[in-house]
Amino acid sequence: MLCENCGKRPATFHFTKIVNGQKTEMHLCEECAREKGELLPMSKDAFSIHHLLSGMMHDLSQRPAASSGERLSCPSCGWTYEDLIQTSRFGCSECYDTFRAQLRPIFRRLHGSEAHTGKVPRRGEERLSKRRKIEALKKELEQKIAEEAFEEAAKLRDKLRALEKEA
């Protein structure tokens, strides 16, 4: 078998990755493997993951459902959908929101899931519950106003202001 990278020398380095039963293989000659830092200890992960991932993301981007992402770019860092596919990396934390719809099949393929069930930052948790309370209060307030229950609405508004100040 010849090296996938240069196509000249015989491939002596073989890599396999399997996630959720999806298998991808790579075959490189020693020279190309070394060039890619493949022979350094600990570096294998980085290379093979990014390389293979970008290939997988490219495949997924060919699907009709993903085409909606083509013109998107991150308002915060300018990262485009193309950048995301090519590097298989995010430019900033807002990229997650920008490409949220396009990311779902990617996360499903990579992890078999789209929802985090692990640790939550403690302060984040507080903020999160405050934000949820604020949302709930706002809805209640709208309803009271619609019902013309102005006294209750005023009370809710004070509560809301206090919470918003805290958050």
């Binding site: 995010f90 929101d97 990617i106 990579l110 929802a115 985090h116 692990g118 984040g124």
Partner: peptide, 30 residues
């Protein structure tokens, strides 16, 4: 992590967890 989080706001998403540079680490980041 708890100690660092007292002074640093981590990039975190309600549904996706800890936001990492590469999607292979998203979630727990662990």
């Amino acid at each position: 992590d708890d100690w660092l989080e007292e002074t640093i706001d981590w990039a975190f998403d309600e549904t996706l967890g800890y936001k990492t540079s590469c999607p292979t680490n998203t979630g727990t980041g662990m």
